[in-house]
Each structure stands twice: as structure tokens, then as C-alpha cells.
Amino acid sequence: MATKKKKLKLKSLSASRPPALKVAQSISSKATRTLIRAHHTLEKQKARALADGNDAKAAGISREIESKGGLSTYQKASLLGQSNDRGGDSSRILMEWLSPIVPALKEQLATGQPVRMLEVGALSITNACSRSRLFEIERIDLNSQAEGIKQQDFMQRPLPTSQKECFDIMSLSLVLNYVPDAVGKGAMLLRTLLFLKSKSSSHVPEYLPSLFLVLPAPCVNNSRYMNEEKLIAIMTALGFVIVKKKLSNKLVYYLWRLESPTTKRGLGFKKEEIRSGSSRNNFAIVLR
């Protein structure tokens, strides 16, 4: 990551997600969680140091990250934490939610115009959505883990030039929380509006076009700056309505249908404290 202060602004996501790991070794689920939490904490401290222009402190934190195994060890833990044998395939939830419209999805497939899905931050080509064979899926990630996943930064992806190039469904599963600053998180959500089809072009308007959003549960239930009420307010301001949600101890899952994009509306969601306490995390979304 660059050490100049001006590089902190989220022009891309490459500063926030680690490089590919070629070989995954066994790590216990407890050790996996500990490693991921520690790495996130250090990355946030590094981002704050860069924001303050303290390059020396940022460099010191980088050395500490490397001393703990570096990004490759973190990527190994991340992959294991999301593996099927640990119940980590979030797309299983999405397929459950879409079950009422499976007949419509099959009809679309039979016409040669399948429902299009963009999976951002894809780690696998064998998840539940892929196995269903109901979608035309495009998978991207900053550091491709497999053939069939394009190495691409969503924030740098060329914009669609027509509805045909847009998507019926977008998946941001454990992606938004990797973005290192609150403004960048807001920018990512705003950018999804440019890639989703219009509701008028959807063959299943009660569900599509939609955004599947998955976050660690503490981002919503233990943040100083975010709770579910505020998340819903942000998504509503962007033009989304909630279709489905599931809250667990570890993760929160949402399916948001896009009613009408509102990128030109004056948006003013700031980083304001909602909860106090030293045990809170700093997850926040800022829309300017």
C-alpha cells in the first residue's frame, strides 16, 4: 500500500483485500477468527496512520502485519472461514430466498436470456448460485483465486453502456467491510446503482434487480456509527427496499431490491456516533 496520504481515498479496493493464497492449510475455526480480527484491527490502524500522514507509524504497522504471517496467512484464514465445510457459502442463503422465483429463472434460461449476476469478491466458482446453473454469472475479485474469476477491481470496472450489460443481481458478500474507510464504503454502494438493471426491464420485479449484501454481524449490531436502522435509511436513500433479511450471531444477510436509483439526490449520511462504549467497532458508511 502506498504511504502517501493522498492515496488513502478509495480509488480502488486493492488496498483493502489481500493477495491470492495458492495453498490453504488447516487452521481451527477459533484460530481463524482470531487471525482475521487481529488483521482487521491492524489494517484499520494502518489506514488511520496514513490518513494522519504518519508514514513512519504506518510502516511500523506493516512490519507488525508481516511478523504475524502477512497477508497470505490472512487470506488463508479468510478462505477457510468462508469454506463450505464451515458453513461459509453465503450464496446458499440467497438461493433459499430466490426459491419462489426459480420457475421464472428457468423460463429466462430457456429463452436464452438468463438472469445475469455479478459476484464481487468471488472466492469460488462452485458456490450454491454456480451449482444451480440458473444464472449467467460474472465473477470478479482483486486477486483471483481460481480460473473463472476475473481479476478486477469493482471500483475500476468499466461502466455498462446499455441495459444488456447491466445485471439483475449483484452480490457483495463480505466485501463492503474490507473497504478501509467510510467514504469508500459509501462510494461502493453508490456505484452498484450503475451496474444494476432498471426495474422496468426485470422479468421478476418483486425480487429483481437486487443487491445481496452480507456483513459481519458486529458491523450492524456493535458499531459506534452504524445500526440496522441507519443501514436501512442509507439503502432507502439510494433507492433500495428490503426484500429479505437474516441476522445471526456472526453474519447479517440482506436482499435489497432496487426501486429507482437516486444517485443525484443530495445524500448526507455522516459518521456520527450512535452507540458509545470502548467495546464498539468503527464500521461506518458515509454518503456525500
Rank of each mutant, 00 (worst) to 15 (best):
A2G: 06
T3E: 08
K5G: 02
K5M: 13
K6R: 07
K9I: 12
L10H: 03
S12W: 00
S16M: 08
P18E: 13
Q25R: 13
S28E: 07
S29M: 04
A31N: 14
A31E: 15
T32Q: 14
T32K: 08
A38I: 08
H40A: 06
T41D: 12
T41N: 14
E43G: 03
L50V: 14
A51W: 00
D55I: 14
D55T: 14
A56Y: 06
S62Y: 10
R63P: 00
E64K: 11
I65T: 05
E66H: 10
E66N: 14
K68D: 03
G70C: 07
L71G: 12
T73M: 10
Q75S: 15
A77D: 08
L79I: 12
N84K: 12
S90E: 13
I93T: 09
M95F: 07
W97P: 09
L98G: 08
S99R: 11
I101K: 00
P103D: 11
L105I: 14
L109A: 11
G112Q: 15
Q113L: 07
P114R: 09
P114S: 08
V115G: 02
V120D: 00
A122R: 01
L123S: 08
A128V: 05
C129L: 07
S130V: 05
R131W: 02
F135C: 04
E138K: 06
E138S: 02
R139I: 11
I140R: 05
Q145Y: 02
G148N: 01
I149P: 01
I149T: 06
D153C: 06
E165M: 06
S171M: 10
S173F: 00
L176G: 04
G186N: 03
L190T: 10
L190C: 11
R191F: 02
T192K: 12
T192Q: 09
L194H: 10
K197Q: 10
S202P: 01
P209Y: 02
S210E: 08
L213H: 01
L215Q: 04
S223W: 05
R224K: 14
R224E: 07
R224D: 02
Y225W: 09
Y225D: 07
E229C: 06
K230Y: 01
K230C: 00
L231F: 15
L231R: 07
I232N: 06
A233H: 01
A233M: 03
M235D: 06
M235G: 03
L238S: 02
F240I: 04
V243M: 10
K244Q: 06
K245M: 06
K245I: 04
K246L: 13
L247H: 15
L247C: 05
N249G: 08
K250S: 14
L251Q: 13
L255A: 11
L258Y: 12
S260C: 10
T263Q: 12
T263D: 09
R265V: 13
R265D: 06
R265W: 03
R265P: 01
F269G: 04
K270V: 15
E273F: 05
I274Q: 03
R275M: 15
G277C: 04
G277M: 07
S278C: 11
V286S: 12
